[in-house]
Simulated assay, not measured.
Amino acid sequence: MTLRMEKVSKVFRDGPNEFKALDNVTLDVKEGEFIAVIGPSGSGKSTFLSTAGALLSPTSGAIMVDGRNIEKLSAKKKTMLRLEKIGFVFQSANLIPYLTVMDQLRVVNVLAKNKQRYETEEELLRHFGLGDRLKNFPSGLSGGERQRVAIARALINDPKLILADEPTASLDSKRGRQVVEMLAAEVRDRGKSGIMVTHDERVLDLCDRVLMMKDGQLVEAATVS
Rank of each mutant, 00 (worst) to 15 (best):
M1V: 15
T2S: 13
L3R: 00
R4H: 08
E6L: 04
K10S: 09
K10G: 13
F12I: 08
D14H: 14
G15Y: 13
P16G: 05
E18L: 03
F19Y: 15
K20S: 11
K20T: 06
A21I: 00
D23V: 08
L27K: 00
L27H: 05
D28A: 12
V29E: 06
K30T: 10
E31N: 11
G32N: 12
E33P: 14
F34S: 03
F34Y: 13
F34V: 08
I35F: 11
V37D: 01
V37A: 05
I38K: 13
I38N: 07
I38V: 15
P40H: 11
S41V: 03
G42P: 08
S43Q: 10
S43G: 11
A54I: 11
L55H: 09
L56T: 05
P58N: 13
T59I: 09
G61W: 06
I63K: 00
V65E: 06
D66N: 15
R68M: 15
N69V: 09
K72W: 00
L73A: 03
L73G: 07
A75H: 07
K78E: 08
K78I: 02
T79C: 13
M80V: 11
R82K: 03
R82T: 04
L83V: 02
L83Q: 12
V89N: 06
V89Y: 04
F90G: 01
S92V: 03
L95S: 09
I96K: 00
I96T: 11
Y98D: 07
L99N: 07
T100E: 00
M102F: 14
D103H: 03
L105H: 03
V107C: 08
L111N: 10
L111C: 11
A112I: 00
N114Q: 07
K115H: 15
K115D: 14
Q116S: 12
Q116Y: 10
Q116M: 12
R117M: 13
Y118R: 14
E121P: 04
E121I: 05
E122W: 05
E122I: 09
E122V: 11
L124S: 09
L125R: 10
H127L: 13
H127T: 14
F128R: 12
L130N: 04
D132V: 02
L134I: 13
L134M: 14
N136R: 15
P138Y: 04
G140Q: 15
L141W: 05
S142M: 11
G143Y: 01
G143N: 11
E145S: 06
E145Q: 15
E145I: 07
R146S: 09
V149R: 05
V149Q: 03
I151Q: 10
I151D: 04
I151G: 03
A154H: 01
I162A: 00
L163F: 03
A164F: 07
E166R: 09
P167C: 01
S170H: 12
K174R: 11
V179C: 01
V180A: 05
E186H: 00
R188I: 08
R188P: 08
D189W: 03
R190S: 06
G194R: 06
M196S: 01
V197F: 02
H199E: 12
H199M: 07
R202S: 14
L204H: 10
L206D: 06
C207L: 05
D208V: 08
R209C: 07
V210M: 02
L211I: 06
L211T: 00
L211H: 02
M213H: 04
K214E: 14
D215P: 06
A221E: 11
V224F: 06
S225Q: 07
